[in-house]
Design a protein around this nucleic acid. Structure first.
Length: 193
DNA sequence: AGTATGATTGCCT
DNA sequence: GGCAATCATACTG
């Protein structure tokens, strides 16, 4: 039994961001009852030049340095809201960017929010996912085990084939294989090669 | 107080 | 493949 254990949907958020990012594949994420199965994630850590937390706590990334098992929400390119899960321990500055879902719940609402019909484009990318799930700054720092958030573990015994590769859209630490995805999923933001 | 910069997306040629 | 949109945060002077 770990002192700082934070177990949600069978995932121990007190472990490293890469371990959490891998373990999250297959977990179902709902926000206000709307969402789907996580099929793509990226890990970020304090000791990682590509991470928002690399240069220490600021107003923007404060939630990343808060307790694990909570949301870190930021605005990307002035346009998109992106959702992260805080991991490790409070004060460390580690998190996992949720990049894509296989939509399962609230399809009509997601289509309306996205202005699209194609189910493959509803949540294929962090900005698209944010729009489909109505993520905004009001969710920053909120617990992932309390409404409007819900995390549901996959059926016990179910095995997912997880692949990894370089992260997308970053200019530093590009060689780190800290992007994780469900092998062969049609709902990835981009395929793994 | 002014400027530079994105963990992106969608539309253009 | 190229690039504009758009703004909160961070950095500079």
């Amino acid at each position: 039994m770990q002192e700082f254990s934070a177990l949600l949907a069978g995932v121990d958020f007190s472990t490293s961001s890469s371990a959490v990012a891998r373990a999250l594949i297959g977990v179902r994420l709902l926000v206000g009852g709307v969402g789907g199965m996580i099929v793509e994630t990226e890990a970020y850590d304090h000791e990682d030049p590509a991470s928002h937390s690399f240069s220490g706590p600021t107003v923007r990334n404060a939630a990343m340095f808060g307790p694990p098992g909570r949301a870190y929400v930021y605005r990307s390119y002035g346009i998109h809201w992106c959702l992260n899960f805080v991991c490790r321990e409070a004060g460390h500055g580690a998190g996992v960017l949720v990049r894509a879902l296989a939509p399962t719940d609230g399809l009509a609402l997601m289509r309306e929010r996205r202005g699209l019909e194609d189910i493959r484009l509803l949540c294929a990318g962090p900005g698209r996912l944010g729009q489909a799930l109505a993520i905004d700054h009001g969710l920053n720092g909120r617990r992932l085990d309390q409404p409007p958030f819900a995390l549901l573990a996959p059926e016990p015994g179910l095995v997912f084939s997880v692949v990894s590769g370089p992260r997308i859209g970053i200019s530093k630490a590009v060689d780190q294989p800290w992007r994780f995805g469900l092998a062969g999923s049609p709902f990835l933001s981009r395929p793994f090669r």
